[in-house]
Write a protein that binds this DNA or RNA. Structure first.
Lengths: 349, 349
DNA sequence: TTTAGCACTCCTTGCCTCCGAGTGCTAAAG
DNA sequence: CTTTAGCACTCGGAGGCAAGGAGTGCTAAA
């Protein structure tokens, strides 16, 4: 059953007001904000029905009304005015995006930081990659008699490198030959297969070689493992304390420690809409049942998506957050979709 | 003027008790904890003098006593019992240290995380490096017609690498030649000098070459800058909320946002004692005037020191924190001093 | 120097009251 | 049938007050 226009209007006023002040709205205050002259008594009748229907509730008999999650949901779906970003807002977002972000891993975490700082809510960020990552290319570089550099390029184009000690001196040919061996036998496969292949080689190569191979393969396996186990970054948890609903230290503590200790369980978007809003109990996770989350995702080229989420009280300013977050995500996509990944973007418009 | 033994004993009981419960201690409670039979009246006389001398204070007339910063200081310097770590504690620390830490940068941050998690206090961590870092070695690796890998080894033995786009195709000789050029002209110098050298080359090399040189030098400059501007990691700020002194949300918020937004101003050890305790107003920074900080540093080989600090209320459990932190720092030093990490530089050239 | 005793201080807790914002309901008006 | 005015009622919050208790300082005796 559909709500009448007037009911919707009232609902919108209640949500808007409650978002702004965190105080329940009374019939009189609402009456004043309604266009046309309507008495508070009329409003009261409407309010009673909205409560009946489950869109509003009152913290106690005889106090104003506040939205229920169902109320927020309707608001978000239909009533919310599209917040259009002001020139300053876009400028400010563009400014945060200005700094160049080198490594994919850092990129994601930085995106989270920017969002949190810019929006004034805690945020979290992660990369949603594909799971089947392998090594695309090995390169060993001689440094001096005691060490060499292992460079590993992964199938998602990330490059990692590390200095490694050389337990025994080697002649000039050894490293290139080992590189070659690695590139022919150890690329394009997963970590377990790397181990298997390595085992097969035990008696085909000299102990010296095997030592080196093992060293590099260890490193590669470690990288692959890291890449598979996607990490989540959270920032700005302390921003929660600004909100009156978290004056209760215990509540704040619960949510904050959930965000840092249980990052992996923070919601990820279902379906493939670019932006998603989860209101209060819509969150599966208990710790989030009294909070809302806005999630957006963006492209980082190469089958990878970045994901950034904003956490706040159910009374979160959905319109503004959604607008900003979506602009943010679009900008990021444009940045990385257009110019490819780790490259420079300083020659941009 | 020295305190009598009995005064010290009383002071110790007050500090111990207040650390444990966050409640002021009364004369009666103290009397019970004193060895031998002493009446509460006697204790009262002593307490009055300790207040007079500035070691204790009372939140209001007629309430128990709590330690002043001066009191804590004496406690820390003389009275505190060395907390010796139990087998479980050391085992637990060793377990956290078990995981291998690859990159120097991550290492430092991970050390902070472990400390925070293990101690139950917020913590911060940074690396104290030398300032005059330069590039020791360049290496460019061809990948395909559209990109190459730049590997840069810094003078502190860290190795960084990144995939770069190739704006124009190059022949097989170009990259090695450019590497050579970079290695002969751009190693061992600071970021400004890199820029200067590059300018000098503008009309000596082809535009194509210059483009590539510029690309790599940009990257190198960025790395040097990053290395010089040491970054600080903070973790576990939410742990603050566990302490009753931070039930006041505003206080908690102030300190927490200080820790994340003003990391650079967190205290670093003065002098060269391996561990330092800063109590309340001994902190220069206003935001920390009501908190205490315990700092320890550890070696990461190669002239570099890691630094990790624990932040808590002045009523922090100094004995335990100090013991654990120092064990932690020692273990880290041992781990990296002894062996492997980012590398040893045994050949001097 | 220590101790017992006592009056005093001041925080905490619970209780009570008052106030006001806001409600639901009823009855009259449109 | 809907809207409005009026009125009694509810309930949380603020303020005041008294009782309780933990702890003190002081004094006088051991």
């Amino acid at each position: 059953m559909e709500l009448t226009d007037r009911k919707k209007q009232i609902l919108k006023i209640v949500v808007d007001g409650y978002i702004a002040t965190a105080e329940p709205l009374g019939s009189k205050a609402i009456a004043e904000k309604m266009p046309g002259k309507i008495s508070s008594a009329t409003i009261r009748n409407e309010l009673a029905e909205l409560v009946e229907l489950g869109y509003l509730e009152q913290p106690h008999t005889s106090s104003g009304r506040i939205p229920t999650p169902k109320g927020y949901r309707l608001y978000v779906n239909e009533l919310m005015e599209q917040h259009t970003l002001s020139a300053e807002e876009t400028a400010s977002i563009n400014a945060s995006l200005g700094g160049k972000m080198a490594q994919v891993d850092q990129l994601v975490s930085q995106a989270g930081q920017m969002v949190s700082r810019f929006m004034g809510y805690p945020s979290y960020a992660m990369a949603e990659g594909r799971r089947d990552i392998s090594v695309r290319r090995f390169e060993l570089i001689a440094v001096d008699s005691g060490s060499f550099i292992a460079v590993v390029m992964l199938s998602d184009s990330r490059v990692k490198s590390q200095l490694m000690p050389l337990t025994l001196p080697v002649d000039g040919q050894t490293l290139p030959e080992i590189s070659h061996l690695l590139n022919t036998h150890f690329t394009g496969i997963g970590p377990e297969e790397i181990s298997r292949h390595l085992m097969n080689l035990t008696d085909q190569v000299s102990g010296q070689w095997f030592l080196l191979l093992n060293q590099v393969c260890d490193y590669a396996r470690q990288l692959l493992q890291e890449a598979a186990h996607q990490s989540v970054f959270t920032t700005g948890a302390s921003q929660l304390l600004k909100f009156p609903e978290f004056r209760d230290v215990d509540k704040a503590h619960d949510l904050m420690s959930f965000m840092v200790d249980n990052k992996e369980n923070l919601p990820v978007p279902t379906g493939d809409s670019p932006m998603q809003i989860l209101i209060g109990p819509e969150n599966v996770n208990d710790a989030l049942k009294e909070s809302s989350v806005v999630i957006a995702s963006y492209d980082i080229g190469e089958n990878m998506r970045g994901l950034v989420g904003v956490v706040g009280p159910t009374r979160m300013d959905y319109a503004t957050v959604a607008a900003r977050l979506s602009y943010f995500a679009e900008s990021l996509s444009r940045m990385f979709g257009a110019g490819q990944l780790p490259a420079k973007e300083d020659t941009k418009e």
